[in-house]
């Protein structure tokens, strides 16, 4: 079972590596969205430091939405999703592996590049650990909840518009607590409540989202 998990992640990563552009696309999109705000709002450093955490989170949300529809769609189209269902291993393993692979290819790059945005927005250096920790806790939840929405809209007409409509309302708690944690760190107020709430959201989605995704995909296939 663990081998099935590992080989699925391996397969996803190889597929992505061979396709090449997707990984860069996520990072470039993430950076571009974040760069647009200072251009629109003007280069006032105080203001930028204030909105910085929010902008990082909104950009992270949007750029993970960019690739989330692909985690199941290509396999749904060419029928390999059906083969996963028919395999002797529980289907949930494959779903969880695919979600993990999505986090590795969209959450992790965002995590790595978020300090760059932090510099653009002159966020004080002392609050970087909290920023990175909140993104590390929050982005897996983005992938998990995004996975539910991707499964729900699998093969839908106008799937491209439907997916954000389903996902974004569900992602609001992550956005709120993630931004609150970093803002608290900048202002010097206690950060643990927001981080704990963010962890709670992650724990809950980790328990609930993969089974729901599995059920949804199964009913989409037959």
């Amino acid at each position: 079972m663990i081998r099935a998990f590992k080989s699925t992640i391996h397969r996803e990563l190889i597929l992505l590596y061979r396709r090449g552009s997707d990984l860069c696309l996520t990072v470039i999109f993430f950076l571009l969205v974040a760069i647009l705000f200072p251009l629109a709002l003007g280069p006032d450093q105080g203001l930028l430091a204030q909105i910085g955490p929010g902008v990082i989170w909104v950009s992270a949300l949007l750029s993970s939405m960019l690739t989330i529809d692909r985690i199941f769609y290509a396999d749904f189209e060419d029928g390999s999703l059906e083969q996963f269902v028919l395999s002797t291993h529980p289907f949930g393993i494959f779903v969880f592996a695919k979600l993990s692979a999505h986090w590795l290819t969209s959450g992790l790059p965002i995590l790595i590049f978020s300090p760059v945005i932090g510099i653009f927005y002159s966020i004080p250096l002392a609050s970087y650990p909290v920023l990175i920790l909140s993104i590390a806790l929050g982005t897996p939840a983005l992938s998990l909840i995004g996975g539910v929405s991707a499964a729900l809209s699998l093969g839908a007409r106008r799937g491209g518009v439907l997916l954000p409509l389903l996902a974004l309302p569900l992602l609001v708690p992550v956005l709120i607590f993630g931004t609150a944690a970093t803002n608290a760190a900048i202002l010097g107020t206690p950060v643990t409540p927001s981080l704990l709430l963010l962890g709670a959201v992650l724990a809950a989605t980790l328990a609930v989202a993969p089974p729901i995704t599995t059920i949804t995909i199964k009913q989409a296939i037959n």
């Binding site: 007409r157 439907l162 569900l170 729901i212 009913q219």
Partner: peptide, 21 residues
């Protein structure tokens, strides 16, 4: 979701799952 798919059963089930979530 109730109008998103060609297959009515698919519509009903997807919408139901979102409603429960």
């Amino acid at each position: 979701l109730h109008k998103a798919f060609d297959d009515p059963v698919r519509c009903e089930k997807s919408a139901a799952i979102l409603a429960i979530f």
